[in-house]
């Protein structure tokens, strides 16, 4: 009897804890965004966060995208060859890269790189009193540290995904023409015919959401970290893990929103 109740109590505690975290996250994100609308603005901090987000993530995202495009071309050839539908490969590559793989893979890679770095930086600032010091120097830390990073995430990830889309298609093109012996011109024509503006835009919209999530998780966990170096380590792990899960979850939700009729 009491054991059963303990179980219920544990579920209840978990549910309350989850609601509290979601509420805290929403408040944190809302506060961060609201600071983007009111001066002072910290352009310097935005540029720094943007360069960190976009420029330094380029190599990782580019490599991921190229290899993904290549592997899709190869895999779908083994599948489609049986049905004599080789022309569909260009379509499969471009649709999967632009709709799904571009945003999701770029999101996951950037979560590991930038989300972790943000959590570590803000976490270190928290445990060494630097965030408190900002407050004593007429600077709101939410405005100075969090708001520019959120904005950088929303803008930078779609740009990265544009690059990823291009390189992913290029990867598929290379494998199809060099290894599978397709006609390059036909392949390109097929690619353009299959792709619609909606595909590209939906991918970019996803990317903007993912970029926001990555920055939000990095900032939230870093900003609220406790307990010295160990706390900063835990914050970094949480930022990456939670951002990655949320990216996959939101990917489903957004796909449902954009394409389910």
């Amino acid at each position: 009897m009491s054991a059963a109740l303990d179980g219920v109590a544990a579920v209840g505690r978990g549910a309350i804890g989850a609601c509290r975290t979601i509420g805290a996250l929403a408040l944190f994100g809302g506060a961060g965004l609201s600071h983007l609308l009111r001066p002072p603005f910290y352009g310097r901090m935005f540029l720094r966060a943007f360069v960190e987000f976009a420029y330094f993530s380029l190599p990782v995202v580019a490599l991921t995208a190229i290899f993904s495009g290549m592997v899709i071309a190869l895999q779908s050839f083994t599948g489609f060859a049986r049905f004599n539908a080789e022309s569909a490969i260009a379509g499969v590559v471009v649709l999967s890269v632009v709709r799904e793989l571009g945003p999701v893979l770029a999101g996951l890679m950037v979560a590991g790189r930038v989300g972790a770095a943000m959590a570590a930086e803000l976490g270190t600032m928290r445990v060494t009193d630097q965030i408190d010091a900002l407050d004593t120097l007429s600077t709101n830390p939410m405005k100075y540290l969090v708001a520019p990073r959120l904005l950088a995430g929303v803008i930078a990830l779609p740009l990265l995904v544009l690059v990823a889309d291009t390189l992913g298609v290029l990867g598929g093109f290379i494998v199809s023409t060099v290894k599978l012996g397709f006609n390059p011109a036909t392949y390109l024509i097929n690619t353009v015919n299959f792709m619609t503006m909606t595909d590209v835009l939906s991918g970019l919209a996803k990317a903007a959401v993912f970029g926001f999530l990555i920055a939000l998780m990095g900032c939230y966990h870093g900003y609220n970290s406790r307990g010295g170096a160990e706390g900063v380590g835990a914050a970094t792990t949480s930022a990456v893990v939670v951002a990655s899960i949320l990216i996959l979850a939101f990917d489903y939700v957004l796909t449902e929103l954009f394409f389910a009729r």
Partner: peptide
């Protein structure tokens, strides 16, 4: 708070900024 200056126990200098920007931050 703008009229209060604080020296933290562990200095709490901003390590992403050079020393002069730390001093002139306020």
């Amino acid at each position: 708070n703008a009229r209060i200056g604080m020296l933290f126990q562990n200095s709490a200098l901003f390590d992403s900024l050079p020393v002069w920007e730390n001093v002139a931050f306020g």
